Amino acid sequence: MKQLWQKWYLGLLMVFALNFAMANDLNHPAQVQMQQNSKDIMAVINNTGLSNPQKIQRLNAYGDRYLDYQRIAALAVGVQWKNFTPQQKQDFIAAFKDMIISMYSNTALMAAQNAKINVLAKNNSANSASKATVYTQIVSNKNKSYAVDYQMYKSGSVWKIYNINVEGASLVTVYRNQFNEIIQKQGIDGLITALRNKAIKKVN
């Protein structure tokens, strides 16, 4: 799938950026949180007084609250995560996040300005008071639609995202083979250095 990670990043922005077309019977707390987030962040995206870097900075502040970067990173690395030291985990998370933002944020932000999203009336039997999957359909500013599903869990009063599936492809697994290949050849510190140097192959 072309520009797959850009779609994932766009999916992240959608969590905070869009007016949701939500049916009355879609009332799970995770869906309600998405709807509540949309109003304030739409003001950021449509604020002509802000530059794109300023908009991205504010959107990322929301992401820091609503995305579980540690869990996303652990799932992206896979079984090797247990071999990371606490400091390596911290360094990897920071470098991974910075790489994705620098690669995809500007193009995804432009796509988010005119995109639309629908929360689908689709139930997951595994949804509970602490875990949920929210199913959506995103229509890009080029009028192309694709399915995006958000896997979430409750942490205190906040629902946090730990995985996104775009057309069935998982955010947390797309880089796993590449990460593990680098670890085998260069070690964990070599992987962190590659992330910091933006030397990871871009997923398209």
Rank of each mutant, 00 (worst) to 15 (best):
Q35M: 15
Q35P: 00
Q36R: 15
N37K: 07
N37Q: 10
N37Y: 05
S38G: 15
S38Q: 11
M42I: 13
A43T: 14
V44L: 05
N46H: 10
N47A: 02
N47F: 01
N47S: 04
N47D: 12
T48S: 12
G49I: 13
G49N: 11
G49T: 13
L50A: 02
N52D: 14
Q54F: 04
K55W: 04
Q57H: 13
L59S: 02
A61S: 14
A61V: 08
G63E: 04
D64F: 07
L67C: 03
L67F: 11
D68Y: 02
Y69R: 07
R71S: 07
R71H: 08
R71W: 06
I72W: 00
I72F: 03
A73Y: 00
A74Q: 11
L75I: 12
L75S: 13
A76Q: 03
A76I: 03
V77A: 05
G78Q: 08
V79M: 06
Q80D: 14
W81T: 10
K82N: 13
K82S: 14
N83S: 13
N83T: 12
T85M: 11
P86R: 03
P86F: 03
Q87Y: 05
Q88G: 01
Q88S: 02
Q90G: 05
F92H: 01
A94W: 04
A94G: 06
A94L: 12
F96K: 05
I100P: 00
I100F: 09
I100Y: 05
S102A: 15
M103Q: 15
M103D: 15
S105N: 04
S105G: 02
L109T: 01
L109M: 04
Q113F: 02
N114L: 08
N114P: 00
N118Y: 09
N118G: 01
L120G: 01
A121C: 08
S125M: 11
S125E: 14
A126K: 14
A126E: 15
N127R: 06
N127S: 07
S128C: 07
A129Y: 10
S130D: 11
S130A: 08
K131W: 04
K131D: 07
A132V: 03
T133R: 09
V134R: 05
V134M: 09
T136W: 03
T136L: 07
T136H: 03
Q137C: 09
Q137P: 00
Q137E: 15
I138V: 15
I138H: 02
V139E: 11
N141E: 15
N143D: 15
K144N: 15
Y146A: 13
Y146W: 15
V148N: 04
D149Q: 07
D149T: 05
Q151T: 12
M152K: 01
M152W: 00
Y153H: 07
Y153Q: 06
Y153R: 05
Y153T: 06
K154Y: 06
K154Q: 14
K154V: 08
S157R: 13
V158N: 12
V158D: 14
W159R: 02
W159T: 01
K160P: 00
I161Y: 01
I161R: 00
N163Y: 08
N163G: 09
N163K: 12
I164F: 05
I164R: 03
